[in-house]
């Protein structure tokens, strides 16, 4: 039954997408916005998120808070398109053009930085960043943000690691490694940043640098969604409090 309702919902969504696409091609286009409606995610047989709805618009930061096990990482991973949704939908507006189904694949417009850094310890910081710059680069015809990427050198300098350019990541400290990972956000421009505990292992000076790059991103009209226990120092951030779901699955 649920399967059927999802299917029909999908069809209507697609119709709307086509209508919207037609409308927006005449106007200047809507502003960047991410809207989550009635999101539900299961891990195994356990329901981790249910009935979650929120909107984030350009220049806005959303801090996802809550105790351990509340589903913060699950939320970020599902927003990044890494987990299938069992209910609800995520819509993205204001970037690129919808494909023929009327959908925008939101996963193509996000930077997802999880607990793990996504760096190869055998490669140098520059090699790692150059690789990600090449992999995440966008065709300039597709997005609004195509030409705003920094080079690896510039990005590392922004994170205060200009000297570590040619050092294999294996030789860097935990905090330095995290900063190289954060520099990945700068070498390819994506409008939505999904950050899971971005400031882990960072000292105060580095935390300020992270705040700076986040503020700059928001200033350019980007979106930041971060899960964290520590204060990020963003003045305008909204907060989303998650509570663990205690009830077991119905079946």
């Amino acid at each position: 039954m649920q399967f059927h309702s999802l299917l029909t919902m999908g069809i209507f969504e697609n119709l709307w997408g086509i209508l919207l696409a037609d409308a927006s091609s005449h106007a200047f286009g809507p502003a960047l916005g991410l809207s989550v409606h009635d999101l539900g995610v299961m891990r195994g047989a356990r329901s981790v998120l249910a009935g979650l709805s929120f909107d984030v618009t350009a220049g806005e930061a959303l801090i996802v808070a809550g105790p351990n096990g509340a589903g913060k990482s699950t939320l970020l991973r599902s927003l990044a398109g890494l987990l299938p949704l069992c209910a609800g939908h995520i819509t993205l507006s204001g970037v690129g053009a919808p494909d023929e189904d009327g959908d925008i694949d939101h996963a193509r417009y996000v930077h997802y930085l999880g607990h793990k850094d996504g760096l190869k310890s055998a490669l140098t910081a520059a090699e790692n960043l150059n690789f990600w710059a090449a992999m995440m680069a966008r065709d300039s015809s597709l997005g609004l943000f195509a030409n705003k990427a920094l080079t690896s050198t510039e990005a590392l300098a922004r994170m205060g690691l200009a000297h570590a350019l040619d050092v294999p990541v294996a030789y860097l400290s935990a905090g330095q490694t995290r900063r190289v990972a954060l520099a990945r956000l700068l070498v390819a421009h994506r409008p939505i940043w999904l950050l899971d505990e971005p400031t882990t292992a960072l000292d105060t000076a580095s935390q300020l640098r992270v705040r700076d790059i986040m503020c700059a991103h928001l200033g350019e009209g980007g979106i930041v969604i971060a899960a964290t226990h520590t204060e990020l120092g963003l003045s305008s951030a909204r907060e989303l409090n998650l509570r663990p779901l205690t009830s077991g699955a119905s079946s």
Binding site: R77, A80, G81, L82, A107, R108, V110, H111, Y112, G114, H115, K116, D117, G118, L119, K120, S121, W132, M135, M136, R138, D139, R184
Partner: peptide
């Protein structure tokens, strides 16, 4: 998968 590269690779256009 272990170092998180796979998550980021899946967000690429490939």
């Amino acid at each position: 998968c272990d170092d998180g590269s796979l998550d980021a690779l899946r967000a690429s256009d490939l």
